[in-house]
C-alpha cells in the first residue's frame, strides 16, 4: 500500500468542522475515538472503548431510529475488518442518512502497530461497493477529503469512504469512560425517551 496518506487528527478536524447538531458520530474502538475526542467531547458522539466490530451496526440501528439525523460511523480498518458482514447487512437496508468512513492506516494501532489485512491487499472500498453502498470513495488527499466533508454535510444516500491515513500514534485523548454516562448524555442531547 503505497501512496499519499493524510494526518488522522487533521482529517477528523476537516470532516467534523461546522458539523451541525443533526450529525451523530459513532467513532470505533480505539484511535478514531481518541481522534474525535481530541476535537471536543460532544454529547452527540457515542465514544467506544470496546465492542470491536460493532461500530457500523450501532450506526445502522441509530440511522434507522433517527431518519432526520445524519449518522457518521468513523472507525479504523481493524475495527471494520472485525465486522465486515455489517457492510452486507447495511447494503441491504440502504439507509439514506448513514456514512461509514474508515480511517485506514493498514495497522492495528492499539496493539503495537501490527499490519492489518488492508496492508496486504484487502480492499475495503471494493468490499463496500460489492455490498451495495451507493457511493464509495477512496481518499488519500486534501481534495478528496474536502469532497467527503461536503458530501457528509449534505448526506443523500448510503456512503462508504476509505481515508488513507498515516500509521502514526498521536497522543491519546481519552473521553468519558463510563458507558452509561455516554449513553445517557447522547440520548438527552437528541431528546429521545424510551
Amino acid at each position: 500500500m503505497n501512496g499519499q496518506r493524510l494526518d488522522r487528527r487533521a482529517a477528523m478536524a476537516t470532516l467534523l468542522a461546522g458539523r451541525g447538531d443533526d450529525l451523530l458520530v459513532v467513532p470505533g474502538l480505539g484511535s478514531t475515538t481518541w481522534d474525535v475526542a481530541a476535537l471536543e467531547e460532544n454529547p452527540r458522539d457515542f465514544h467506544m472503548w470496546g465492542a470491536m466490530g460493532g461500530a457500523a451496526m450501532i450506526g445502522l440501528g441509530l440511522a434507522l431510529a433517527q431518519p432526520a439525523h445524519r449518522v457518521a460511523v468513523i472507525t479504523g480498518d481493524g475495527e471494520m475488518l472485525m465486522g465486515l458482514g455489517a457492510l452486507a447487512t447495511i447494503g441491504i437496508q440502504q439507509p439514506s442518512n448513514l456514512a461509514v468512513i474508515v480511517f485506514d492506516n493498514a495497522h492495528y494501532g492499539e496493539t503495537g502497530m501490527q499490519p492489518s489485512h488492508t496492508h496486504d491487499g484487502a480492499d475495503l472500498v471494493a468490499i463496500a461497493r460489492g455490498c451495495g453502498f451507493t457511493t464509495c470513495l477512496d481518499i488519500n488527499d486534501e481534495a478528496g477529503l474536502a469532497d467527503l466533508a461536503a458530501r457528509l454535510k449534505d448526506l443523500r444516500g448510503l456512503l462508504f469512504a476509505r481515508v488513507a491515513i498515516e500509521a502514526d500514534d498521536p497522543p491519546r485523548v481519552l473521553p468519558e469512560r463510563d458507558g452509561v454516562a455516554i449513553k445517557e448524555r447522547f440520548r438527552a442531547a437528541i431528546g429521545v425517551r424510551a
Binding site: 451523530l24 451496526m57 445502522l60 440501528g61 441509530l62 434507522l64 465486522g83 429521545v192
Partner: peptide, 26 residues
C-alpha cells in the same frame, strides 16, 4: 417494524444499542 436480516447474530446486538441510542426499541 424495520426488519433487518443479519449475517451474524452479534450484528444484532450492536444494532440494538444503536436503536436505543436513537430512541427505538428492538
Amino acid at each position: 417494524i424495520r426488519d433487518v436480516v443479519l449475517t451474524t447474530e452479534e450484528e444484532g446486538v450492536a444494532m440494538a444499542a444503536g436503536a436505543w441510542l436513537g430512541g427505538n426499541r428492538s
